[in-house]
Structures are given as structure tokens and as C-alpha cells.
């Protein structure tokens, strides 16, 4: 998939520091408990350079995990390190190397994007001599240059989201953490930023959470599925899809059959076929329906298969 917009990105990507050292984010046995609730249970993973997706049901703990890696909240137990630098014993050096977009990103409404980003550049300790240049660069990359003199009060949600993405790039981070960066963006913007994240990931670790895995599937190096406090899958997307093979079925039902069966079936898609219901069914065993046949799983089928395992709620 070629993107015609993304050529300007390459200048940001040139790394300033020597990154021949092992570029790796390592999480070791991360557990997080809130009072009696366990939000995350023994999460371990190591991520090399590349684009990594974090997905899972609402409330599965994606945001909690990203907040822990960003150093916003502490895990109950476990270790986080980036290129051998520990988040807990060496947190200043760790945090200097990351860029983070929180799920709810607030802006100061009285500032223009330029002033806002300059403020963040100062907070991040970017030397004054290069800060102005850096702000221009990230505004260019996030495609917000044309609104530079409007105060953020007048910006739409999607435009503010782009300021948040720009802010995460200011310090040329080795690890870019983004919590649902595409939310509120329209289809063209989504397409542009998907490609941007892919380009950025050639030189750094990009970890982003998303609900719409289809858009990033072709670009991502790996995917992590967080559900019921645990990583239910981690690895390349094609391997995730293999797990659902043999668990997806296609059947054509009449109105009456559909009404009888619909509460007991897990349905991944429903289409009208000349007055009949064409239904894709997720089931580890062959459903008891006449004429049902096994089909190849799509990404969406696979996701539903994995999160509906062991319980049908």
C-alpha cells in the first residue's frame, strides 16, 4: 500500500542518537490491581522496532497498560524497561525517550497549536535553539500547519487529536505510545496516519491501541489481544488468524430459523440474501444447522472467535 502524502516524514525519522544498541521494550510480569479488581494479570512481552497493535474489548485494560508503560501509574508488580533502561530505577532517562498520546488529550483552548506545541517542547526540555524548528516539523507531519493561527478553542475534536499526535513526536521518541490515536479522525486522515505510523515504526517502537484492526492489519508487525486481564494472543496477524481456522461457518437461514437460533449463535456478520439471512457464525464446533459450511476466517471473525472463547457474553 503506497501513500502519496507521507514523503515529508522521512526527515523526522532520521535518528539523532545511535540506535544500534538493542532497541527493545520489555515488560516483565506486569500486574495491576485496583482495590479488589485485577486490571492486568502477569503481562510479559518484548517488542522490537516496528508497529505493534494493542486491541481488546472496552474495559480490557489497554489504557491501563499504556499508562503504566508511559509512567503515569505504577503497576502493582512487574518491571518495564526500554533499551535496558528501567522505568522505575531510571525513570527520567526512560521518560525522555518516549512520546505518549493519552486517550483523553486535553489542550489549552486559549493557545494556538504553535504556542501549545512550543509549550510542550519546553516542558520536554527540547533546547530553545531547535524547538521552533521541531514544532514546525511536527505540525507539518501532523498536517495542522494550515490552521496555525487559530486558537485551539475553535478546533474540532479530530483536529485536536492531530495536535496530540504532533505533541507525541516532538522529542523524536524511541518509543511512541498512542492510545486510540485514530479516534475521531475521518477516513482520509485515518489513512494518512496509518501510513505515518508505519513509516515512523521503521526507526522506533510504535505501540498503539485501536478498535479497528482492519485498517492497520497490513502495516502492523504484531498484534496483542488483551482480554480478561491477560494477553490472549501476541504475534503476527496471520498467525492470529490461523487460530480461528475451523471456527467460522456460513449458513443461510429463513426468517423463522434465524429467530429461533439468534440468541444462541455468535454471529460475525448478517446479510440479506434475497429475503433470507446469510449468517457467518463463530463456533469452535460445527453448528447444528443444515447446509452449514466452514469458511476462512477474516480478521474480524478471528477477533470475535478469540474474545468469545470460554464464555459467550
Amino acid at each position: 500500500m503506497q501513500c502519496i502524502y507521507v514523503t515529508c516524514v522521512m526527515k523526522l525519522i532520521t535518528p539523532k542518537m545511535d540506535r544500534r544498541e538493542k532497541n527493545m521494550l520489555v515488560l516483565d510480569s506486569i500486574t495491576k490491581r485496583f482495590k479488589k479488581n485485577t486490571a492486568l494479570n502477569m503481562i510479559s512481552l518484548s517488542l522490537p522496532k516496528g508497529l505493534h497493535l494493542l486491541t481488546g474489548p472496552n474495559g480490557a485494560g489497554k489504557t491501563t497498560l499504556l499508562r503504566i508503560i508511559a509512567g503515569i501509574i505504577a503497576p502493582t508488580t512487574g518491571q518495564v524497561s526500554l533499551n535496558g533502561i528501567s522505568l522505575f530505577s531510571d525513570s527520567v532517562r526512560f521518560k525522555a525517550r518516549i512520546g505518549y498520546l493519552p486517550q483523553k488529550f486535553g489542550v489549552y483552548p486559549e493557545m494556538t497549536a504553535q504556542k501549545f506545541l512550543r509549550y510542550f517542547a519546553d516542558l520536554k526540555g527540547i533546547p530553545a535553539s531547535v524547538a521552533a524548528q521541531k514544532v514546525e516539523e511536527v505540525m507539518d507531519i501532523a498536517k495542522i500547519t494550515s490552521f496555525h493561527n487559530k486558537t485551539l478553542r475553535d478546533w474540532t475534536k479530530g483536529m485536536r487529536q492531530k495536535v496530540g499526535i504532533a505533541q507525541g513526536l516532538l522529542n523524536d521518541p524511541e518509543l511512541l505510545l498512542m492510545d486510540e490515536p485514530l479516534s475521531g479522525l475521518d477516513p482520509q486522515e485515518r489513512y494518512y496516519f496509518c501510513n505515518l505510523f508505519s513509516q515512523l515504526s521503521s526507526e522506533r517502537i510504535v505501540l498503539l491501541s485501536t478498535h479497528i484492526i482492519e485498517e492497520l492489519a497490513a502495516l502492523a508487525d504484531s498484534i496483542m489481544l488483551l482480554d480478561k486481564n491477560k494477553l490472549q494472543f501476541k504475534g503476527p496477524i496471520p498467525r492470529m488468524m490461523d487460530t480461528a481456522r475451523g471456527g467460522v461457518w456460513l449458513a443461510t437461514l429463513s426468517e423463522g430459523e434465524w429467530n429461533n437460533k439468534k440468541t444462541e449463535l455468535i454471529v460475525s456478520s448478517l446479510r440479506d440474501n434475497n429475503g433470507l439471512y446469510e449468517v457467518r457464525i463463530i463456533s469452535a464446533v460445527r453448528p447444528e444447522i443444515t447446509g452449514v459450511c466452514s469458511v476462512e476466517p477474516t480478521l474480524e471473525d478471528t477477533y470475535i472467535y478469540l474474545v468469545s472463547k470460554d464464555d459467550s457474553e
Binding site: 474489548p57 448478517l270 440479506d272
Partner: peptide, 21 residues
């Protein structure tokens, strides 16, 4: 469907498809 996870988004698709008949 804004902000919904894939299963919930799929639930909404199914509801829309069924009602749309």
C-alpha cells in the same frame, strides 16, 4: 459505532442489518 470495540461494533452491524429489512 464510534469508540466501540470490534465485538460491539459487530453487534451494531447485526442490529442495523436486521432492522434495515
Amino acid at each position: 459505532t464510534a469508540g466501540l470495540d470490534p465485538v460491539e461494533r459487530n453487534n451494531i452491524h447485526n442490529i442495523i442489518s436486521e432492522l434495515g429489512r
